[in-house]
Each structure stands twice: as structure tokens, then as C-alpha cells.
Design a protein around this nucleic acid. Sequence first.
DNA 1: GTCTATACGCTGATAGAC
DNA 2: GTCTATCAGCGTATAGAC
Lengths: 189, 189
Amino acid sequence: MKQPISKDNIIHTAAILFKEKGYSAVTMRDLASQMGIKAASLYNHISSKQDLLKEIVISIAEEFTNGMDSIVASNTSNIDKLKRVVVLHVKITANNTYGMASLNNDWMHLEDQLDYYLKLRNDYETNFLNIIKQGIATSEIKNSNPEIIMFSMLTTLRSLYLWIPKKEELNANDLANTLTQVLIDGINN
Amino acid sequence: MKQPISKDNIIHTAAILFKEKGYSAVTMRDLASQMGIKAASLYNHISSKQDLLKEIVISIAEEFTNGMDSIVASNTSNIDKLKRVVVLHVKITANNTYGMASLNNDWMHLEDQLDYYLKLRNDYETNFLNIIKQGIATSEIKNSNPEIIMFSMLTTLRSLYLWIPKKEELNANDLANTLTQVLIDGINN
DNA sequence: GTCTATACGCTGATAGAC
DNA sequence: GTCTATCAGCGTATAGAC
């Protein structure tokens, strides 16, 4: 399992450590030791610790933005759009279980890219909320508080990174299906 | 709004800063400056930074444990128990919006109390899951994957701290009611 | 491309004056 | 009860030998 020292592998290892302890608590010496080299040697491959966070967070944030844009542009019912949002989260999270921790918990330590990140996140939430509001307007969705509906769905989806690694026996499709059912149809019999 | 320097006020201010940047990124100098004193003076009131984290996290964790124990012991339907769990989260979170951030994101920085915290959390989840399993057994709850149901509900409830401060116009009872409806009855019309 | 050596500001925490 | 002074160690990052 020993990896060659490359920028991509350093980023990946950093994401693992950031998930474990958070960005601020991980030192470059921790990271280097995990890679089997000295801290100074990391700088032959990367430019700074901050750069690692940026690479992890921004790339995933852009994946979400692209996925949401494609869902918004699609010509389907609003319930179907919500189902596609669930699938989007399950797929991205399954491929980035470590990076999702930084996206959720360490974004405030971004420096140059903080405003950009906040804009991506804000636009995402606006699109999500609009789908729900339109679904209510067309009576696809119950006439409940749309912010609470979005909050409930989105926080569940954003926390998937904590949970997917423990449930390897479920494949992504089964998880997306069950989750969709729970989130949309509820649990009441 | 200037507060006297006391252990409780230091803990409260620490919780605010921990929510903003995380435990590791907050320095004793940050905290002291927020209190209007020098870092050294903090140590007349508290024993260490670690002690602040412990006070914040363990007290809330014990509140959840006590609330859950009382729900489990109660003689009601399982759906009703779930509703009471929602109320428990809304109430505790409304009273500890800052501390909930540490409970969720900084517990891994606990030193002496880490094992105790993990036991409380694990017992809580076991109790939660049992309510759902019993609800499925009595056909109160749809026969879906009980872990996914618990995960979905619990992550939403654990994220309330991010959201309650933005929705001050909703009182705790209204929020608990709407949230219960969304989580239990779903959103599908 | 990795190493050792090094810079140097910041960290949590203590001692002792006032 | 707060202050200044101070400590030893750790933080990110660079320089230059190999």
C-alpha cells in the first residue's frame, strides 16, 4: 500500500488527516511522517499547507456546483430533481469521504478562496431551496416551511461522509434509493 | 454587554470562538483578548484550555444522555418517543448553540474524557436505534433500513446548531413541530 | 528529491511584581 | 486578580548540501 510521493498522494493523505483532527490540528510534520518523508521534503511537491486545503475543498465544491447546475437545467419534476440531488451527494461523497470533512468543517480556514467558496455554497443552497419552493407551488411537495425542508435534507446529505465509510456493504445505488425514500416519503407507516 | 471575568463567562466566550474556528485554531491569547484581559490572567479562573473543552462538551453530552434515558423509560409509543427526541435536540441546541459546535466537531480533541464522551455518544445512538427498531417491529414505522432512518434523523438534529441562530423568528416549539412533521411524515404530497 | 540545519513567530502555561 | 516577563517546544517554511 506504499504510495509514491506525488502532489495527488499528498493531497489525499492530507484529506485523511484533516478528517481525523481538523485542518488546524494537523501539522506538516504529521503529514510528512505519514508519507514517510521529512516535512521539508513536502515542499518539493506542494507550495503550502493552505494550498492543500484549497485543492481539497474547492475541487469538491465545484463538483457540487456543476452537478446542481445540470439538475436545475433538466426538464423533470421537482421531486425528481430532489432525487437527483440525493444521488449527486451520495456519488460525490462516496468518491471523497475524506475531503467532505474539510468541505464541511474546515472551509473557514480558506484564505484567498474563502469568498469564492462561500459564493458556491450560497448559490447551491439557493438552487436547492428553489426546487423545493417550486415543488410546493406545483403541489408535488407538502406545504411546509421550505427552509426547514431544505435544512433537513441538506444536513443529512452533508453528513453522509461520516456514515458511508461504516456502511461499505451498501452500494451507492441502494443507499441513494433508501435515503430518497426516507427523506421524501418519511418514516411514518 | 461587558461581562465580568468568571469561569462561566470564559467558558461561554470560548464556546463562541470554538464554533467560529474550531478548538485547535483558537489561542488563549484570542480568548483573553475577547475577554479584555491578558492570556496569563485567564489562568486565575481556569486551569487549562483543555479544561474549557471538557466543560463545554461533557456537560452537553450528559444533558443528552439524561434526556434520552427519560424518553426510553417513558411509557409511550415509539413514534411519540421519536417526537420527544426531536424536542430534546431542539431545546438543548437552542440553549447551547455555540457548545453544540464543539460537541459535533471538536470532541476528538478531548484528552482524559475522550473515552467517556465516546461511551455517552455510543449509548445514545444505541437507544435511538432501538426506538426505531421497535417502531418497525410494531409497524408504527415503515420497514426501511433502521440505520439509515436513524442516520438521517440524527444528522439533521445534530446540525440544528448551524441553523437555529439564523431563524430566530421561529420559536422552539414551532421548529420542533415542523421538523417532526418533515422527519416523520416526509415531504411528499 | 530528500535530507539537515535553521529561521523565527506563536503556542500553552508559569513566576512573581503590583 | 491582572499585569509583564519569560519559558520550552512546536508551527510553517526556506536554504543549501548531497
